[in-house]
Amino acid sequence: MTQAIPRFWREIQSRYNLVGSKCGSCGKVDFPPRAVCPDCGRKSIGKMQSFKLCGKGTVVTYTTIYDAPSQFDMQKPYVMAIVEMDEGVRLTTQLINVKPEDVKIGMKVQATFRKLGQDGEAGVIHYGYKFRPAGS
């Protein structure tokens, strides 16, 4: 799954720095940023502001992946989780620095910066967030 360069590049702010959006109408935070608030609909158009998440959250559910596309060969098995951020919005992320058997629902985690993949040995390297146990 090679990512075209601009396709990854245009998401850098969200992937590096967890930049989402906040609805100017109801205050709901979305990640990645949305042009329309799912709660307010038309009322929110033109009122969506850029908003940076604090990077802290809680594990809502998780899995350990054993069968993965070849670009993840090096990391197998690895843990994926859905994390509810302190701002309320949820995202899907890899969990690192933790053994699969030690992951728990409700566990506090924080964002970190890692390599997500690359377009082969000669291609562009993609970076972005992964999460680790808070305080690790």
Partner: peptide
């Protein structure tokens, strides 16, 4: 370094 770490990720961690 882990398989997802390199000088860029280490530099970012240190800078942050």
């Amino acid at each position: 370094p882990g398989p997802d770490e390199d000088v860029i990720t280490i530099s970012v961690e240190a800078a942050r």
